[in-house]
Computed example of a mutant assay.
Amino acid sequence: MTNIKPNIVLIGTGGTIAGRGDSSVNASAYDCSILPIEEILASVEAAADIANIGAEQLFQMGSENFDSEQLLTLGKRISTLLRREDVDGVVITHGTDTMEETAYFLHLTLDSDKPVVLVGSMRPPSALSSDGPLNLYNAIVVAASPQATGKGVLLVCNDEIHTARDVSKHSTFKLEAFSSPYGPLGVVVEGRALFYRAPLRPHTVSSEWSIDCIEALPEVGIVYAHGGIRPATIKAMCDSGVAAIVYAATGNGNVARQLIGSLRQARSKGIHVVRASRTGSGIVVRNGGQPDDDYDWLAAGDQVAHKARLLMMVALSTSAAGSAQHARSDTAALQRILQEY
Rank of each mutant, 00 (worst) to 15 (best):
R201T: 15
D159G: 07
Y196A: 14
V205E: 11
E190M: 10
E215K: 07
S207M: 03
G186T: 04
F195G: 03
V167A: 04
E208T: 12
T149A: 13
C213D: 13
K174M: 10
H170L: 09
A216Q: 12
K174N: 13
A144N: 04
T149G: 07
C157R: 04
V156G: 00
C213G: 10
L155H: 01
D212G: 11
T204P: 07
S171R: 14
G186N: 05
I161T: 00
K174V: 10
H203Y: 05
Y182C: 14
E176Y: 12
I211P: 02
S206K: 15
D159M: 03
S179R: 14
D212C: 07
V220K: 01
S168G: 05
D166S: 15
S145T: 09
I161W: 00
E160G: 10
E219R: 15
V220N: 08
V156S: 00
H162M: 07
T204M: 01
R201V: 12
V167P: 04
H170D: 06
E176L: 11
A164Q: 01
S145W: 03
S180Y: 05
G152A: 03
L175S: 09
S168T: 14
H203S: 10
A193Q: 00
L185K: 00
K151F: 05
G186Q: 06
E208V: 08
G183P: 03
D166P: 06
G191E: 01
L175F: 10
H203T: 09
Y182F: 13
A198D: 13
Q147A: 15
G191N: 05
V142N: 01
T163K: 09
A144I: 03
K174F: 12
E215T: 14
F195A: 04
L200D: 12
S168L: 11
R165N: 12
H170S: 11
F195L: 04
C157G: 10
Y182T: 15
S179A: 15
S210Y: 04
V220S: 05
E176Q: 14
G186P: 06
S207T: 07
L194Y: 04
T172C: 12
P218H: 07
R165E: 06
F178Q: 01
R201L: 13
S179W: 11
T172A: 12
C157Q: 13
V187K: 11
V189M: 12
L155R: 03
R201Q: 12
S207Q: 06
P218W: 03
E176A: 15
G152R: 05
E215G: 13
V156N: 00
T163Y: 09
A177S: 13
V205G: 11
V153K: 04
A144L: 02
P181I: 05
V153Q: 08
Q147T: 08
V156C: 00
P199E: 06
H162N: 10
W209S: 08
Y182D: 15
E219K: 15
E208M: 07
T163A: 13
S207P: 04
L185C: 07
H162I: 05
L154H: 02
A177V: 07
A198H: 13
H203C: 11
G150C: 05
E176I: 08
P181Y: 08
S179C: 12
V188Y: 00
S179L: 09
V205M: 14
I161M: 01
P202A: 09
G152S: 01
P218K: 09
V188K: 00
G183C: 09
A193D: 01
L155N: 08
V156I: 06
E160I: 01
A148P: 08
F173P: 00
